[in-house]
């Protein structure tokens, strides 16, 4: 079965994840701790923004209402963005940024692998094949930094542990399937995120072990992004992201 209009919201969830995290990474530009990381953060941001662009264009085509990639990326209301809360969390220090990247990549790399291998949507499978390679790099790069900072100095270990306490509670949402997602799973468009949980747990545990980080016990996972219920930082992010499109409506750039 090819993609149909009811699949659009499920594709937009992923596109929004990529856009918002790509935007967050782009905020680092010019402010990274070392020059090599300027390059790496920009690389990862570019990968995610490229994925977002391909996904928005694809969603717009399936929807067939004339909405372009930019209409979808820049001209929706906050409630209409369906990214998970993890990706909108502010950058914080380098430990927060790298841990957020690690959590996300540890999910997305196998996610894209399965989409590439089994999606009923050939275009999506094509996007996935490229994205999987990119996320494999993000996973390796961010994982190495989690280890360096976790098992570095006293200060870096403390900062990594703080980041884990702060961010781990946002990882539960990666495995939740919204009604739109469930429909896409049922039609073989996307894999069930639950099927990726064991692999994710293993990836996290292996890196935490090497990083000498403790797995936190989080009783209540935070959620809301997939329903459009975002945190307070999201509005500020969108105010910047949408600034030109809102200030000068209907113009070509």
């Amino acid at each position: 079965m090819a993609a149909v209009e009811t699949h659009v919201p499920a594709i937009l969830e992923i596109a929004d994840d990529c856009l918002i995290l790509g935007h967050r990474l782009s905020e680092w530009c010019g402010h990274a701790p070392i020059l090599e990381e300027e390059m790496a953060l920009a690389n990862m941001g570019l990968d995610l923004l490229g994925q977002a662009r391909a996904l928005y264009a694809h969603a717009g085509e399936i929807e067939d209402k004339g909405r372009t990639e930019d209409d979808l990326a820049f001209l929706r209301r906050e409630r209409e963005y369906r990214n998970c809360l993890l990706v909108e969390r502010r950058n914080g220090d380098f430990a927060h940024t790298m841990l957020r990247q690690f959590y996300f990549a540890a999910f997305m790399q196998p996610f894209w692998r399965d989409v590439a291998a089994g999606s009923t949507d050939a275009t999506l499978a094509g996007i996935a094949a490229k994205a999987e390679k990119e996320m494999a790099y993000h996973l390796r790069h961010s994982g190495e930094w989690v280890i360096r900072m976790g098992d570095g100095t006293e200060e870096s270990a403390r900062r990594m542990a703080d980041a884990v306490i702060e961010l781990h509670r946002y990882t539960g949402e990666l495995f939740m399937a919204s009604p739109a997602r469930q429909q896409a799973i049922a039609s073989g468009l996307l894999p069930d995120p639950e099927s990726l949980r064991a692999e994710w747990d293993e990836t996290i545990a292996a890196v935490f072990n090497e990083a000498k980080l403790e797995m936190p016990e989080i009783r209540v996972m935070q959620k809301g992004g997939r329903d459009g219920n975002h945190g307070e930082d999201m509005g500020h992010l969108l105010a910047e992201l949408q600034f030109m499109q809102r200030a000068y409506p209907g113009q070509t750039w």
Partner: peptide, 13 residues
């Protein structure tokens, strides 16, 4: 702001 990151990388190495 990046000083602690560079120190961590050296310490880990």
């Amino acid at each position: 702001d990046g000083a602690w990151v560079r120190e961590a990388a050296l310490a880990n190495a």
